[in-house]
Amino acid sequence: MATLIVIPARYASTRFLGKALAPLRGATGQKKTLIHRSWDAAQAVRGVDRVVVATDDDRIRDEAEGFGAEVVMTSQTCENGTERCAEALTALGEDFDVIVNLQGDAPLTPPWFVEELVAALKTHPAAEVATPVLRCDGRALSGFLEDRKAGRVGGTTAVFGAEGHALYFSKEVIPYTQGNGWSDHDQTPVFHHVGVYAYRPSALAAYPLWSAGPLEQLEGLEQLRFLEREKPIQCVEVDARSRQFWELNNPEDVPRIESILQELGVE
């Protein structure tokens, strides 16, 4: 299956202006921008035919081209990363069997998350969209709950049915859990939605033609547009293999991500 990874990135992030260019210090003290580290994460994925950065900002384009990335310029009217991926695919004018949206704020995404996502589309021929979910351990859940107490939007959580079809995604911690009595390494009933999507071309082409529904607008979660149109999303449970995963949503996330980079020994 011919596979394209698109890394959508914009400068005008609502919660963290210019976060794509935020420097992140690695284990050796070297600083790389968020978009650079996201590019590195994409390059580690096996079986990918092409990787591009999709942006509407000259500053991000210049940074990405400076470290050797291929860049596709997209319009400022894209409402989210999925729309930007759709526009980038049209601009490239090539055929791919699978398009992966590796969001530009998730530099800690392990390569096997994406590999297993693409494999899931192979084994589920009826699925048009797939996304990974990661069972939270006690440490990750504590981080989610601390963010909500502080009024910060942390990671997104997901609930899904017996066959893996998504029921809902939320920036609240769902399902509701009474208290937080889990130790750091305990497995909890909460699943972290990892900000990666794999689409078949038909699903990606249809998405920009639909208007955003009330749930997408309330939550600010692009994937809810598929659910509001009653298009199933296949949730693929992945194994973190003891690695911590976190997205850069707020300035407060920078030290947390830098700490994980240093734990992993990432330069």
Results as ranks from 00 to 15, higher is better:
G47V: 12
L34P: 02
A44K: 15
P125W: 04
F144I: 03
S38D: 12
Q103H: 13
T74Y: 00
P125S: 04
V51L: 10
F113L: 08
C78K: 02
C85N: 01
A64W: 08
P132E: 07
V48F: 04
E146Q: 08
E115G: 04
R59T: 10
E116K: 12
D62I: 13
E146V: 07
A41K: 06
E83S: 08
K122T: 13
T109D: 03
L108M: 13
D105G: 14
W39G: 02
N80D: 15
R84Y: 01
I60A: 05
L24R: 05
D49E: 14
D56T: 11
A20S: 15
E115H: 07
R10T: 13
L117E: 04
E79V: 08
V51A: 02
A86K: 01
G68T: 12
R15H: 14
T33H: 09
E94T: 09
C78G: 12
H124Y: 03
T77E: 09
G68F: 13
G18Q: 07
K19S: 09
A42Q: 04
V100Q: 00
G104R: 04
E115S: 06
A64R: 03
Q30V: 14
G47F: 06
G66T: 12
V51S: 04
A119M: 03
I60R: 01
F96D: 05
V114Q: 05
L34M: 14
L141Q: 04
L145E: 07
E83K: 01
A91V: 09
R15V: 07
T131S: 15
F67V: 13
T123P: 00
T28Q: 10
S75Y: 00
D97E: 15
R61N: 05
D62L: 15
E115M: 09
T28N: 13
T55I: 13
D58H: 13
E83F: 00
A88Q: 07
L121K: 01
F67S: 12
L89F: 07
Q30F: 10
V45N: 03
V100L: 05
E128F: 00
R46A: 15
R15E: 12
N101C: 11
A27D: 04
D62P: 02
T14D: 14
A127H: 02
R139Y: 13
V118Y: 04
L117W: 04
A41W: 08
G93F: 07
T90C: 06
T74H: 01
H36A: 15
V118G: 03
F113S: 06
L21M: 08
I35D: 00
A22M: 10
P23G: 06
V114Y: 09
L108I: 14
I35M: 10
F67M: 14
Q76N: 08
K32D: 12
V114R: 04
R10A: 10
G47Y: 09
T33V: 07
T109P: 05
A86Q: 05
G104M: 10
G93Q: 08
L121T: 01
H36R: 15
A126H: 07
L24P: 00
G29R: 11
Y11L: 13
T90P: 00
L121P: 01
A54R: 03
A41N: 05
C85R: 00
E128N: 08
T74W: 00
